[in-house]
Amino acid sequence: MAGHNMAASGDAGVELPEICKSAGNMAGDMQMSMDHKMDQAHMDLMAGMNETNRAMMNSMMVEDIDVAFVCSMIPHHQGAINMAKAELAHGDNQWAKDMAQKVIDAQEKEIAEMISWLEGEGANE
């Protein structure tokens, strides 16, 4: 993306462009976010990840690290699918809606691959 600093910031990943920070970092404080009046589109977007966070965190506790990684990625991917569905339901921009559909297609395929691995090789870990 031209003009946006997407330089890596250590193990935390990429630094978001300034436009992504314009909400005053409300998402960093879930209680503050819940107290702030949001429209249905934003509530659906937040719920997309929130409902999968507990499963993701619990899955990380599986003893075998490979299995823990794969198990925690399934709800992580499902959260992305849920967020993409919120975009499809509420979004206006065709590029963003197309990206949301790409996310759904890719993440559903990867979830199926991860479940297959868990039922096969992962079960033997």
Rank of each mutant, 00 (worst) to 15 (best):
M114Y: 01
A27S: 14
I81V: 05
K109V: 09
N5Q: 11
H77P: 00
E15H: 11
V14D: 09
M38I: 02
V62F: 07
H90S: 06
V62W: 04
N58I: 05
H4S: 11
G79M: 03
D105I: 08
H4C: 12
D11E: 15
V70M: 01
D92R: 10
M61R: 11
K97D: 00
S9P: 01
M49T: 08
H77I: 02
N58C: 07
E15V: 14
S116F: 05
A8T: 14
H90T: 01
M99G: 09
C20M: 14
P17S: 03
E51V: 09
I115R: 05
T52P: 00
M56N: 02
E18W: 07
S33D: 08
K109L: 12
T52W: 03
Q31Y: 13
E113D: 15
K37N: 12
A8D: 14
E51A: 10
N82K: 00
A8C: 13
A41E: 03
M61S: 12
D39Y: 06
K109I: 10
E108Y: 07
P17N: 03
G122I: 02
Q40F: 06
C71E: 08
K102S: 15
A27T: 14
A55S: 11
M34F: 14
D11A: 15
V67D: 01
D98F: 10
H76F: 01
A2C: 14
E87L: 10
A2G: 15
A2R: 13
Q40R: 11
G91R: 03
M56Y: 00
Q94K: 15
G91W: 00
K109T: 13
D39M: 08
A27D: 15
M57Q: 12
Q107K: 05
I111T: 01
D66Q: 13
E18K: 09
M26Q: 09
N5L: 08
G120M: 07
N50R: 12
H4F: 11
C71H: 03
E121R: 09
G48N: 03
E51L: 13
W117Y: 07
M34C: 08
D44Q: 07
G24F: 01
P75C: 00
M34R: 10
I104V: 06
G3R: 08
I65G: 13
V70E: 00
N124V: 10
F69K: 06
V14F: 14
A100Q: 03
E125M: 13
W95E: 15
M99P: 00
G13M: 06
N58G: 10
I111A: 04
S59C: 09
N25H: 14
A27N: 13
D66S: 10
G10S: 07
L88R: 06
A23P: 03
D92L: 09
S22Y: 12
G24A: 08
S116V: 12
S59R: 03
M61G: 11
F69P: 08
A86E: 02
K85C: 04
Q78T: 02
N50G: 13
G120P: 03
M34T: 09
E51G: 06
A41P: 04
V103E: 00
V103W: 05
E110S: 07
M43R: 02
M26W: 06
S59Q: 05
H4T: 12
S33P: 01
H77N: 02
L118W: 05
Q31D: 14
Q101P: 02
N5A: 10
E113C: 11
I19F: 14
G122V: 03
W95C: 15
P17F: 02
K37H: 14
M83H: 06
